[in-house]
């Protein structure tokens, strides 16, 4: 059995008396897609924030590649190769789409690992940026990569958010609700994209509300409720779990909805 790339143990976080996370633990194997589900306000986004360093956990450990990253500032964590997307998409609106990717290319990590060293010439950076965008579904022929980020529709913005992570050459991407706000067809095209990322060796944590798509992708799922982990397992195991049905769906009838 391989070593887990990320192991979270007993993470707690309270906001002024409200327990947002209680003793959350899980492990993540390289190449996995881990789904994180739970009702609204169950602490999913707090978990993402706690792992990626935007919120400091009160106690507990987050071991990433053998190092405890609790208390590290977000940019240091991202520098190690763990990055995230945001639920509220805010690309750099004043820049064209491909220039959005130039920003992460200025990080130390990207300069270390990137294939666009070549003296750091602007030309090569632009090329790589457009290549990444094309790979993720921006049609080069129709000049979508060159459009201003502020004029792009939601579907593209979600992709842009992912592309911005990819430009960093990360090992883990935490996706905070990439499917929310997308139309059915946009979601359908998003699924193979995530599979492609997995094939490229990127480990994914997906925080989602859209269970149908998530269960097609994820090989493990954890369920949060009131900040605590109430179930963990393969999608099928989780769906059969009594407690999950109670907490998440209220009753068994809703099962058919998924």
């Amino acid at each position: 059995m391989a070593e887990p790339i990320l192991s979270v143990s007993d993470v707690n976080k309270t906001f002024g008396g409200v327990k947002a996370l209680t003793e959350v633990s899980f492990e993540l194997m390289p190449g996995d897609i881990l789904g994180v589900i739970g009702p609204n306000g169950s602490g999913k986004t707090t978990l993402v924030n706690a792992i990626s360093g935007f919120v400091k956990a009160d106690s507990g450990q987050v071991i990433y590649k053998g190092k405890d990253i609790v208390g590290m500032p977000p940019h240091k964590i991202a520098d190690q190769g763990l990055t995230r997307t945001f639920q509220v998409m805010r690309p750099y609106f004043s820049l064209p789409a491909y220039k959005n990717l130039i920003v992460p290319m200025f990080s130390r990590r990207a300069r270390r690992t990137g294939g666009w060293r070549g003296g750091g010439r602007m030309g090569s950076r632009d090329t790589v940026a457009v290549d990444i965008l094309e790979e993720i579904g921006f049609e080069r022929e129709s000049y979508v990569p060159y459009k201003m980020a502020s004029s792009l529709p939601t579907g593209y913005l979600k992709r842009l958010e992912l592309a911005r992570c990819l430009a960093l050459r990360p090992e883990i991407i935490i996706c905070d609700e990439v499917f929310s706000g997308l139309s059915m067809s946009e979601m359908a095209s998003m699924v193979p994209l995530m599979e492609k990322l997995q094939m490229e060796g990127i480990t994914l944590i997906m925080v989602e509300h859209r269970l149908r798509e998530l269960f097609r992708l994820a090989n493990r799922v954890i369920v949060l409720n009131f900040g605590a982990k109430i179930a963990e397992g393969t999608p099928d195991e989780v769906m059969d779990n009594k407690e999950v049905k109670e907490a998440y769906f209220g009753s068994e009838e809703v099962y058919s909805y998924v």
């Binding site: 990626s52 935007f54 500032p73 977000p74 940019h75 240091k76 991202a78 520098d79 990055t83 995230r84 997307t85 945001f86 805010r90 690309p91 750099y92 609106f93 004043s94 820049l95 220039k99 959005n100 130039i102 920003v103 992460p104 200025f106 990080s107 130390r108 990590r109 990207a110 602007m122 958010e161 911005r164 992570c165 430009a167 960093l168």
Partner: peptide
């Protein structure tokens, strides 16, 4: 160009710049 883009990134969305591994 260059570094100026990072400045503008910081202005538009500093959280995302942090998540991109930039101080």
């Amino acid at each position: 160009e260059d570094m100026g883009l990072v400045f503008r990134g910081v202005k538009d969305n500093d959280q995302a710049v942090k998540a991109s591994g930039i101080n």
